[in-house]
Amino acid sequence: MIVLEWLFLTIAPCDAAEPWQLGSQDAATPMMQGIMDLHHDIFFFLILILVFVLRILVRALWHFHYQKNPIPQRIVHGTTIEILRTIFPSIIPMFIAIPSFALLYSMDEVVVDPAITIKAIGHQWYRTYEYSDYNSSDEESLTFDSYTIPEDDLELGQSRLLEVDNRVVVPAKTHLRIIVTSADVPHSWAVPSSGVKCDAVPGRLNQISISVQREGVYYGQCSEICGTNHAFTSIVVEAVSRKDYGSRVSNQLIPQTGEA
């Protein structure tokens, strides 16, 4: 079993962290897909450079061994090689920088109008989510707290320190605006599958826009040291179809408006 784990053949939910994970989690948004593609593109150049540098290093050590060749050639100048080793390393970062900036700005940019705004408010040590698009007054109509389920209360199949009692339900294939802020200390709202990591700063509203492409449950954790229970402040996003989202939200709205 351990060998299997070493070979990364374990069956684990792809949208949560797994033991001994080296790669990224499966992409759920175009943003995460872009990040992974960029990573792979850069790794191509990275490995080329690594091989080249290692070759030079080993070759130098081999040929200029102190016993075999105690007196090296006394070359101090080589115009050609100096030009080459200046120009090539300056071109390579360009190949890395261009797609990197393209991705960075496309992530930052909000191209289309979002259909839903969800407010994720960090607290010590839980998160409050507000769905206020359907409000008709200043009274909050759909707000809930999301606590991590303690280890003793876990049911079979639930991930330790990842599962929460109230998940954030979002519609899939819809442009979402998530407003991230905090009520006390800095937190961070991070869901690796959706390629999102946004600091929650008190007094400031940070916006991230995502569009989850497939239905599923996505796990994330607080990514900014926020106090004692930092490790117990997880995030679970549940992407459902638009229709299910509509019925879910209206079902939750009715009892609350009934109380009010």
Binding site: E109, V112, P114, A115, T117, R177
Partner: peptide, 15 residues
């Protein structure tokens, strides 16, 4: 499904 549209006065992350 409707919410506040993207506003070109506030194009940055800070909203």
């Amino acid at each position: 499904l409707e919410t506040a549209p993207a506003d070109f006065r506030f194009p940055t992350t800070n909203q």
